[in-house]
Design a protein around this nucleic acid. Structure first.
Length: 503
RNA sequence: GCCCGCAUAGUCUAGUGGCCUAGGACGUCACCCUUUCAAGGUGAAGAUCGCGGGUUCGAAUCCCGCUGCGGGUACCA
């Protein structure tokens, strides 16, 4: 799919940090970003912000783009597709950042700082305790004469580059979702732009790259609001036009804290392994923090692109509700997926459980059709694809296990003696025809019901237990049909033998 | 501590001065359907619209204060 800029000039970037699997909160922001851009016919840039070499997780370099691909969030420029504004890995743009940092120092908007981490910690602690603004760094090196600073840098003294923030006045940030946010300059610190290892910090790299990549709209998490004034100052120092800003809400765990690993599965990869459909996840993520009206909650991807815009995005954080996600996933499985689509998605889960051999199952083969028939029966009750193996195992295993709780189910109010009498009769009734004929099977079983003067459920449940080894299955006659005559009879015989063995 | 943000049922939300006796969805409960479990259908419980003041004939909706919750406060992103 090629997206061309329709002339709206909207260019956005999604800038994940490769420090682990794609987090659902990151994906949420990414999705909003993507929907906004696609809605406006703009260009999506994927930029990997890998400047923190200590926290870098190499696996995520490939994992994050892959997870985005799974979600159907594509990008027009970035890793894999290239583009005119590369490189798209931030670590490869360090020279550029350095150059701009030098420019800032040269024009007097930034300075070299030689303070040790130890000194910084002390100062911070003291100022915080005494409430001296700003409560962090005391701007100690801001007053070192430029010549002296340059000499010390040349001499190889460890240093960072810090931004000179205005000492007073106000800095106002305009947010597309929240309106104006005003900060008192006296509370703002001289942030580090370039670390002593030469790598730029997020704030700085971000501003430089956003400008260099001609980004027009920045959508990012609410947790970035406090650093927005710093970005404003940076843009001003360079004399660059400020991109439009929009801070999206955070995804929270049940304890109302920022959603994180300690809340359980939070990575997109984990959701996929649980058997969440990407369509359902995208839909669910889209309606948390955004709404269309007071009625609709199910949206196709196309509909989302058509309807999504920032004016209907909420500013308040939301608790991630896995239960509702599962409901939506079930809804997609039950109502929106074709049987072939469901089969394709279910196959890997069945194969992983050892129930089917994926190599021999291709569309058109009997094995494939059997799986399809099984899924047609069970799809109403599937919430997660990962539930399918357990749910459908008895359709694929050669035999089933019996327990007294199932075959001599007390709820059916049948004595073991009655079971020993009725079960063989039911077996014979089924053997008298073919289970492919559901109505015929039902009629013959009804004769058994009448003969013994029982309730239909009592006999049906007995047969259900015998052929499946469980008390909950789809409708009995369709289940028998899909199981097939030989399997049904073999299991009925096994069940008869089992109950007799207990007499 | 300081700075910033947010505030409608357990959860996600609709609502932008009168249509609100606050609508929808998830979850919960009940009933219907029924051979089990689901699905589906119907219905119910659940919100003093965080609190307190204003403004107004009239406020969930506008203003102020408070409280609560969250985020930031790093040579992480």
């Amino acid at each position: 799919m090629v997206h061309t800029d329709k002339g709206t000039g909207v260019r956005t970037r999604f800038a994940p940090s490769p420090t682990g699997d794609l987090h659902v909160g990151t994906a949420h922001t990414g999705l909003f970003n993507w929907l906004f851009t696609r809605h406006h016919g703009g260009t999506v840039v994927l930029r990997i912000e890998d400047t923190d070499r200590k926290r870098l997780v190499p696996r995520s370099l490939g994992g994050i783009p892959e997870a985005l691909g799974w979600l159907g969030i594509d990008w027009d420029e970035g890793p894999g597709v290239g583009g005119p504004y590369g490189p798209y890995f931030q670590s490869e743009r360090q020279e550029l950042h350095q150059r701009y940092a030098e420019q800032l120092v040269a024009q007097g908007d930034a300075y070299y700082c030689f303070c040790t981490p130890e000194r910084l910690a002390e100062v911070r602690q003291e100022r915080q305790a005494k409430n001296i603004l700003p409560t962090g760094y005391d701007r100690h090196c801001r007053n070192i004469p430029p010549d002296e600073a340059r000499r010390r840098v040349a001499a190889g003294e460890p240093h960072v580059v810090r931004l000179k923030m205005p000492l007073e006045g106000q800095i106002t940030v305009t947010d597309l979702i929240r309106g104006e946010i005003t900060f008192d300059a006296r509370t703002l610190e001289d942030a580090v732009l370039i670390k002593s290892d030469g790598y730029s910090l997020y704030h700085f790299a971000n501003v430089i790259d956003d400008h260099e990549m001609a980004i027009t709209h920045i959508l990012r998490g609410e947790d970035w609001i406090p650093s927005a004034p710093l970005h404003v100052v940076l843009y001003r120092a360079f004399g660059w036009a400020m991109p439009k800003l929009a801070h999206t809400m955070l995804l929270l765990g049940p304890d109302r804290k920022k959603l994180s690993k300690r809340h359980g599965a939070t990575s997109i990869q984990e959701f996929r392994d649980q058997g969440i459909l990407s369509e359902a996840l995208v839909n669910y993520l889209a309606i948390i923090g955004w709404s269309w009206d007071d009625k609709q909650e199910i949206f196709s991807r196309e509909e989302l692109i058509e309807k999504f815009d920032l004016d209907r995005v909420k500013a308040s954080s939301a608790i991630f509700d896995h239960q509702k996600l599962e409901w939506m996933n079930g809804y997609y499985i039950n109502h929106l997926l074709t049987l072939d689509e469901l089969t394709a998605r279910a196959l890997p889960f069945l194969a992983r459980a050892g129930l089917v051999d994926i190599a021999t199952v291709t569309p058109g083969t009997p094995a494939y059709e059997h799986i399809k028939d099984v899924l047609a029966l069970e799809k109403d009750r599937i919430k997660l694809l990962s539930d399918i193996p357990e749910m459908t195992a008895y359709f694929f295993t050669p035999t089933v296990e019996y327990t007294p709780e199932v075959l001599l189910n007390k709820k059916q109010k049948l004595t073991p003696e009655q079971v020993r009498e009725v079960l063989p009769a039911a077996r014979d009734a089924i053997a008298a025809g073919d289970v492919a004929d559901e109505a015929g099977t039902e009629a013959r079983l009804d004769e058994v019901v009448a003969r013994f003067g029982l309730k239909r459920g009592q006999v049906f449940m007995l047969v259900r237990a015998a052929v499946s080894g469980r008390t909950a299955t789809p409708g009995l006659f369709e289940t028998l049909r899909v199981l097939g005559q030989p399997t049904c009879l073999a299991r009925l015989d096994a069940a008869v033998a089992w109950v007799e063995g207990r007499g």
